[in-house]
Design a protein around this nucleic acid. Structure first.
Lengths: 163, 163
DNA sequence: TGCTAATGAGATGTAAAAAG
DNA sequence: CTTTTTACATCTCATTAGCA
């Protein structure tokens, strides 16, 4: 239950960012977010390529790009519980490791259970802050739901709904 | 439960700024290469690299040139919420760090939200100090709107203003 | 002095880790 | 696997401060 009094726990993030420049200490290559080869999803991660050898003490947070997200959601709509093989296929497809994709599916399932999953349909919206709605695919912000809906329809058409 | 933190918890306010890119702090490279105006203060700033390491108590204000502004506004008109990758692309494009461009977009969004996309204070009175209109791209001043419009058309023609 | 780049704090989203 | 927690990344909003 982590009853440590880590409430206070001054986060070292302050010093983190400072000395976070690519140090020379080569940490054991855990191979998490390897710079995917020359797939269609390479652009955004260019700046992270020299981050592949992650820091020992730092958590390596993968930034999933909107393009990758779109594919992931699309596959998720087809099967939210893919087998290991399918998982690896998806991973290769989007250019992420199997582990990352797996975690994403786990988190997305949990998110959906909690009811905060891409409710493209009527009803709930992605409220955030005051009157800001964020598109789940790209990160565009909108002030009203109708605008977000229009954006979703035009830019991220849910073709998987066709039956 | 998600017991949100009511405790002290020193915030990691750095989360927004100085991220892990090759240029964390210092690095007087930020100053954009001034194309035409070779002023003297630039020289003294550049030659102060070493001293800058010790005294970084001063805030480093980047001067964005009209040329850079023009590109920034152009990209902004296409997408006011660029993804990380796009942001870096823009940064490379204009020759500024990603952080600077990011801050510019944040400030510009805030400015736009407040209804002052650029200049022109509240009350919709075009009075800018002394009945002056300022070009959003360069900083040229005009007394009447028609003059500004003409200037905009001739010098900063918005060819792709509409996506 | 006005405009605005930069900073700080609070809030939100979520990838990754820990607990179950 | 699920549920919960942690850490990090980014946003808004308010404020500070640098330069023409």
């Amino acid at each position: 239950m982590v009853s440590h009094l880590n409430n206070i726990q001054i986060k070292n993030t302050l010093s983190d960012q400072s000395n976070n420049t690519f140090n020379s200490s080569m940490a054991p290559i855990k191979q998490s977010t390897k710079p995917m080869s020359e797939t269609s999803f390479e652009g955004q991660r260019a700046s992270r390529e020299f981050e592949e050898e992650h820091r020992r003490d730092k958590r390596q947070r993968t930034t999933i790009t909107p393009e990758q997200l779109e594919v992931l959601y699309q596959r998720y709509s087809l099967d939210s519980n893919p087998t290991r093989g399918v998982l690896e296929s998806i991973a290769r497809d989007v250019g992420l490791t199997r582990r990352v994709v797996q975690v994403w599916f786990q988190n997305t399932r949990a998110r959906e259970r909690k009811g905060q999953f891409r409710s493209v349909g009527p009803g709930s919206s992605f409220t955030l802050g005051l009157n800001h709605l964020r598109c789940p695919f790209c990160r565009a912000l909108f002030k009203v739901k109708s605008a977000l809906d229009a954006h979703m329809r035009s830019r991220h058409w849910p073709r998987s709904a066709i039956g």
